[in-house]
C-alpha cells in the first residue's frame, strides 16, 4: 500500500479544462493531485528569419514555475536548470506529435505556467499542452499523454506523489502516444530492465483513461456555449 493509500496503478485526481484563456489561440488548465498548471499556445505564426525552417514548423516550449508554486520557500524569478531541461524534453516530445510539415516556416509557441506543484509537473504539463494544441487547431498525428512511473518499496507504481518521488528508488516520467510511440522518457534512479518494461506497460494501460479525459474536456466545452472562465474552475 502506498503512503497515500493508492493502488500500484492508481492515479491521483485529474481535472482538465480547455479554452480558458482569451488571447492564446489554444489553452488548457489541468489539476492533477495538487498540481495546478496552465498552458497557452500561440501560432502557427511566421517564424523570424533567424530561426525559421522552410520545411517545417519550429516548436518553442517554455516551462515556468510561479514563485509561489512550492510548499517550501519562495522560488526564484529566473528559470532554474531543471525548468530549462524540462522545456527541452517537452519541446522534443511535442515536436514529434505535431504535424510540423503542415506549417513550413511557421513557429508554434507553447507557454506553460505551473501555479501549484506537487510532483509529476512535466507529465501533467504535457497532457495540458496536448489539449491546448488541439484547442488551437494545430494538427496532431495522435493524442498523447504522460505519467510519472516510479519505483517505490521495490515495486513499480504509477503517478508518484511528491513524497514518493523524494523517498523512492526511481522516477520514470514517460510521455507516449495513444498508439504507443514513446515521446519522452527519462530516468532518475536505479531499476532493472524488467522494471522499465513493466513501467512502460503500466503507462500504456492508461491510454483509455487519458483518451476519455481529453475527450470529456472537449465534449463539455462543445455541449454548451463556448466560454470558459478560469476563475470558476481554479
Amino acid at each position: 500500500m502506498r503512503s497515500d493509500g493508492r493502488q500500484k496503478d492508481e492515479l491521483r485526481n485529474i481535472k482538465l479544462e480547455v479554452g480558458i484563456l482569451r488571447n492564446a489561440k489554444g489553452s488548457a488548465y489541468i489539476e492533477w493531485g495538487m498540481n495546478k498548471i496552465l498552458v497557452g499556445v500561440y501560432g502557427p505564426e511566421e517564424a523570424p528569419p533567424a530561426i525559421e525552417n522552410l520545411e517545417r514548423a519550429i516548436i518553442k516550449v517554455e516551462y515556468r514555475m510561479a514563485t509561489f508554486c512550492s510548499l517550501e520557500e519562495h522560488g526564484k524569478y529566473v528559470p532554474n536548470r531543471r525548468a530549462v531541461e524540462i522545456s527541452k524534453v517537452l519541446r522534443e516530445a511535442l515536436s514529434n506529435l505535431i504535424l510540423v510539415d503542415r506549417y513550413p516556416g511557421g513557429l508554434i509557441e507553447v507557454q506553460i505556467l505551473v501555479l501549484q506543484a506537487e510532483g509529476g509537473t512535466r507529465v501533467a504539463s504535457f497532457v495540458a499542452a496536448v489539449a491546448a494544441l488541439i484547442d488551437a487547431g494545430i494538427a496532431l498525428r495522435d493524442i498523447g499523454y504522460g505519467i510519472s512511473a516510479g519505483k517505490v518499496n521495490n515495486e513499480i507504481v504509477l503517478d508518484l506523489s511528491k513524497e514518493e518521488d523524494n523517498l523512492g528508488q526511481g522516477d520514470i516520467p514517460i510521455c507516449i502516444t495513444r498508439k504507443g510511440d514513446i515521446l519522452l522518457l527519462q530516468l532518475d534512479g536505479k531499476i532493472s530492465y524488467e522494471e522499465l518494461q513493466s513501467a512502460i506497460e503500466m503507462v500504456r494501460s492508461k491510454r483509455e483513461f487519458f483518451e476519455n479525459l481529453i475527450r470529456d474536456a472537449f465534449t463539455r466545452r462543445y455541449s454548451k456555449e463556448l466560454s470558459n472562465d478560469l476563475v470558476r474552475h481554479i
Partner: peptide, 15 residues
C-alpha cells in the same frame, strides 16, 4: 455531441 480527436481515425488530425 461526441467529439472526434486527432488520431481517432485515419486522416483525422484535428478536432
Amino acid at each position: 455531441m461526441r467529439v472526434i480527436l486527432p488520431g481517432d481515425m485515419e486522416n483525422i488530425y484535428n478536432l
